[in-house]
Amino acid sequence: MNRTRMSALLLALALLTGLLAGCAPQNADPTSTPSAAPVIESAQPSAEPTVSADRPAVNLAMLSGPTGMGAAKLMADNTDGLTLNDYTVTVAAQPTDLTGKLTSGELDIAALPTNVAATLYNKTNGAIQMLALNTLGVLYILENGDSIQSIADLAGKTVYATGQGANPEYVLNYLLRANGLEPGVDVTIEWKATGEEVSALMLSGDADVAMLPVPAATSVLMQSSDIRAAIDLNDAWTQTGAEGTMTMGCVVVRTEFAQENPQAVENFLEEYADSIAYVRDNPDEAAALVVEAGIVPKEPIAKAAIPQANLVCITGSDMLSIQEYYQVLWDADPSSIGGSIPDDAFYYMP
């Protein structure tokens, strides 16, 4: 064999060896455990796990808007095959798109407004449990003008809003009554199906006052210099002397799934906590992931909204802090949380 053919053969063997090494499977690390702290404090997520092909399957659903934003990093990692669980992910616009699928078993874990979670728990005799609180207050009163400085200034106004039958309606009703105003009598409330409808009315000038959550409120403020954030409802809540913290979003799990798949639930809590920490602490990078996930439509809006979204990850016994908020909702309207304040079995505490 001449020197040229021998060199070519050696080169081919070297390339084949490199290819085989590059395709060799990586060892999984199944020993990871959930973070001990229930509230996320770390600025960066933990190192990306190495996973095997045998990952627990989880049907996961998030809502567009603030309650879904914290899952964006988890969703991106799942697409890349880097999560401990193998998630099939749904992003829905309304909680009603998810509640039936939870009770039927089509979904295992889902984000919901906290009042919807309590209602579903009560109506299904404990078929779901709360895994984590993920979003504090994100509601704002927006005004085309400068006449509103407090909730009391809403007297005689028409407020356009979205969120009827969920936290926004009950929070607004509570705050109005705490300020001596009766909803529908002293203040007219026009409920719309989506934030897009309310936003369009504000931007066209057909509405002067609106209540919107982040990121819809963020988008409106970015598009019009004539519209201002008149009231942060977190501040209004505190000013009324209401007990507890306005806590609007959470993640729930089917009780049966949690009992049969405790490792998958632990995996989710670890990965979700890391995801929320990443999104909250890296808004520039996370904004692109939020848009890719279909949670917010535009990257500049996502980037501006992340710091306003009050993202948290509160788990374990610390979730009991929401009971004071539930008490306020129950006092205002027992049906807002399904007729009763959930008992301790509602909270996932293995």
Rank of each mutant, 00 (worst) to 15 (best):
L10I: 15
L289I: 09
E169V: 06
L120G: 01
E106K: 11
E260S: 13
V91C: 05
N144R: 15
L84G: 07
S42L: 06
P95Y: 02
D206W: 07
P25C: 08
Y347W: 09
S42R: 14
R55Q: 10
N78M: 08
G294C: 09
P300W: 04
T50N: 12
P307N: 08
L11E: 12
A93F: 06
T88R: 14
M246C: 05
E169S: 04
E292H: 04
T162Q: 11
D232V: 04
P168R: 02
A305V: 07
M222E: 14
E169Q: 15
L289W: 07
L133G: 00
A36E: 13
G241C: 04
G165P: 02
T194R: 05
A286E: 13
A53V: 10
E190N: 10
A216M: 13
Q44W: 14
S219T: 12
A117G: 08
S32G: 15
I301S: 04
D77P: 07
P283K: 10
V328A: 02
Q26K: 13
T247N: 00
R5C: 05
S64I: 08
T124F: 10
Y174V: 02
L139G: 03
M211A: 03
Q223F: 08
I276H: 01
A24C: 10
Y348N: 01
A28Q: 13
K101Y: 07
A200Y: 03
E266A: 15
D343S: 14
T96N: 13
M211Y: 01
E196H: 08
L203S: 08
D29E: 14
S317M: 03
G100D: 04
E292L: 07
G22P: 03
L112C: 03
E41F: 13
P283S: 12
A21C: 11
A24D: 08
N167D: 03
T90H: 09
A118M: 02
L15V: 13
A43C: 08
A36D: 12
G126I: 00
A178M: 11
A110R: 02
V159Q: 06
D343Y: 04
L19R: 12
N282L: 10
G126M: 02
I151T: 10
Q259D: 08
N59I: 03
S204A: 14
M6T: 15
M349G: 05
Y348H: 06
G18P: 08
T135Y: 01
V253W: 00
T79A: 14
M202A: 05
L60K: 01
R280M: 06
A110F: 05
P49Y: 09
T90I: 13
A37L: 14
T158F: 12
G137Y: 01
L15I: 15
V312I: 05
A332T: 11
D206I: 09
P34T: 09
